[in-house]
Structures are given as structure tokens and as C-alpha cells.
Computed example of a mutant assay.
Amino acid sequence: MIDFNNSSFVKLAPADAEATAQELAGLLIEGERVAAAFRGMRDYVAFTDKRLIVVNVQGITGKKKDFTSLPYNKIQSFSVETAGTFDLDAELDLWFSGLGKVRLEFTSSVDIRWISQFIGYYTL
């Protein structure tokens, strides 16, 4: 579960952006596109060209889902930490106006520098 009050959860790995876009089709506004997607065990996040969508899959069957929309224009600052020799995960910290800090942890296979550039493009 992605818990914004507890920043530690399953590491996110790259996922198919097109398949994720199809899952989110009912939520995306006209012209909005999914640029990248990342999945944990059941939960996932999608980086669109307008916002970050965090999906928390709930229940035994997974039919119930919580969709959290985090617009880039509400990001006050952000930080990335690359994977190291002993610390094999990469991290993205985002500070949102009215929400506070959101941390996403990624597997070492994720290009965290690309994510940093992507977030920078939409916030700076």
C-alpha cells in the first residue's frame, strides 16, 4: 500500500506505460498522456504530462482502488537519491503544497535521473 504518512513500501519497478494508460483511461483528461509507469506488488504510479497518479489497490480481490492525483503545479520542491553499492534503491521525494512530503522508492533499474529531469521540466 502506498501510505503518504509512512514513506516506506514496496519498491517500484518499470511498467508498461501504454497498458497503464488503458487502465487509467477513465481518469485522464483530453490530450493527457502517460509518459512512464512504475509498479510495486499491486500498487502503481503513473507520471503523466500533467500530474502524478498514485493507485492504491485495496481488498483481497483488488477491485477496489484508490486513485490519488498529485498535480505537478503543487510541487514546492523535490529531491532524488540514486542507488548506491549497498543501498540498492533510488528515491524520489516530493513536497506538495497542502499535503507535505511524498516519497516514492524505486528499484535500482529505474533511471532516477530521467525522473528528475521529467519532474524538473514540469515544475521549473
Rank of each mutant, 00 (worst) to 15 (best):
S108D: 09
Y122C: 01
S109C: 03
R113S: 13
Y44P: 01
D93N: 12
V55M: 04
K65W: 05
G100F: 08
S97H: 13
A25V: 07
Q76G: 07
F9P: 00
N5C: 07
D3A: 12
I60Y: 13
M41G: 10
D89C: 07
T48H: 10
D43E: 10
G26D: 10
T82A: 14
I53V: 11
G100H: 06
A90G: 10
L70D: 03
V34L: 08
L52H: 04
T61K: 13
F67T: 03
A35N: 11
I2E: 06
A35H: 08
Y72G: 05
Q76N: 13
D89L: 11
L94M: 12
S7H: 14
D16H: 02
L24G: 07
F86S: 12
R51G: 04
T85N: 10
E23F: 08
D93F: 14
T48F: 09
G62E: 07
S97V: 14
D66T: 11
T85W: 14
N73A: 12
P14D: 02
L92F: 03
L12N: 05
V57Y: 06
G84M: 05
I2W: 08
A19M: 06
M41L: 15
G31C: 03
N5Y: 08
N5G: 14
D43Y: 04
T68P: 00
P71V: 06
E23H: 06
A21L: 02
E18H: 06
I115W: 01
I115E: 04
M1V: 11
L99M: 13
A35F: 06
D16Q: 02
V10E: 15
K74I: 00
G100D: 07
V10K: 13
A36I: 00
Q58F: 11
M1G: 15
S116Y: 10
K65Q: 14
A46H: 05
F9Q: 10
V55H: 03
G40K: 03
S69W: 09
L70A: 07
E105V: 12
L12C: 06
V10I: 11
K50V: 05
V110L: 03
I75P: 02
R113Y: 09
D93V: 04
T48Q: 09
V55N: 04
K65E: 12
R33M: 13
A83S: 14
G100V: 02
T61A: 15
V80H: 04
A46K: 05
D87E: 15
D87L: 15
G98E: 12
W95N: 15
S79V: 07
W95Y: 15
I75R: 05
L24A: 09
A83E: 01
I115Y: 03
I2T: 07
D111N: 13
S108C: 02
F38C: 04
S97W: 06
T123M: 03
N56Y: 07
E30T: 11
I112S: 04
E18K: 13
D66G: 12
V57T: 15
N73G: 01
F118H: 10
D3K: 10
S7A: 13
A83K: 05
D3T: 10
G31A: 13
P14W: 01
I2L: 15
K101M: 07
Y44I: 01
G98S: 13
S8K: 13
V34S: 06
R39H: 12
